[in-house]
Nucleic acid binder design. Structure first.
Lengths: 132, 132
DNA sequence: ACCGGTGTATTACAACACTAATACAGTGGC
DNA sequence: GCCACTGTATTAGTGTTGTAATACACCGGT
């Protein structure tokens, strides 16, 4: 199973595609907290990009407390994800939904259509961590 | 009533803040289709930025078919918004909700919390265009 | 035709983004 | 201690982004 896959022609920066995929897999449960990520060189080689590009992706993720990098050891999904105060989280959520709704309405989508899309996505992204 | 307000220190480019606000007001009904926008120079002066910055914002919006620019006349909210094919729209919506859910889960938000935030936003942004 | 409003085109430039190359440094099994 | 693996630091080049300055062109009322 190929965890990482990028499109060099998509216009979105490689390092950001990598970041997005790590975050997606974390949200979807494909990558559980504590799990080791591919090494910088290995991932760079398999994606055919310069190692520094992966360094950037990993560094940003580490700065977001999403992964943890240990010198000489490797990079790992952060064991205990950062907790954000409920209020702050609420504010951020509103910001995100606001963006969503503004653009959705621009597309001509009705309320139901928006809700449905959300439901589908919620359904698709396995929310509950698999109880091993 | 001040329609436009920017924060030069927010890190997000001024031209993009302007774009976002136009789109927001359009979605919220504050700016109805056909309505005239402030002229480039006027808005530039009132925001204390270079006119070229507003030019960029307006141009991008025009390119998105959100506004219409008429040489010598001014800029206007596009009278009839572009319609996007339902499938394409659905795909785009899914992309947006995906982003939302991934980040929301990163914040530790549960499904209910996400749904609630969306409901609040839907409620806040007046969805039905005022039937004149 | 004029004039004061409107948008347009060209050019410039500093800052930043993105990727790359290369040499350095920690870690752990042998 | 060595070696093969890990991440780190430094430097740099290329392109794009974001803003600005200036001169040009259209529109409509007079």
């Amino acid at each position: 199973m190929l965890l990482f896959q990028i499109d060099p022609h998509s216009g979105v920066p490689v390092y950001r595609q990598v970041m997005d995929q790590v975050r997606y897999h974390l949200a979807a449960g494909t990558l559980a907290p504590g799990r080791q990520l591919p090494s910088i060189r290995e991932l760079a080689r398999s994606l055919a990009v310069n190692p520094a590009t992966i360094v950037k992706a990993y560094s940003e993720l580490a700065h977001l407390n999403i992964i943890e990098i240990r010198h000489g050891r490797g990079a790992f999904i952060h064991p205990d994800p950062p907790v954000m105060p409920a209020d702050e989280r609420r504010a951020r959520l509103r910001q995100l939904t606001n963006q969503l709704v503004v653009e959705a309405r621009q597309l001509g989508a009705g309320e139901k259509e928006i809700r449905d899309a959300l439901e589908q996505t919620l359904n698709e992204i396995n929310p509950e961590p698999p109880e091993t």
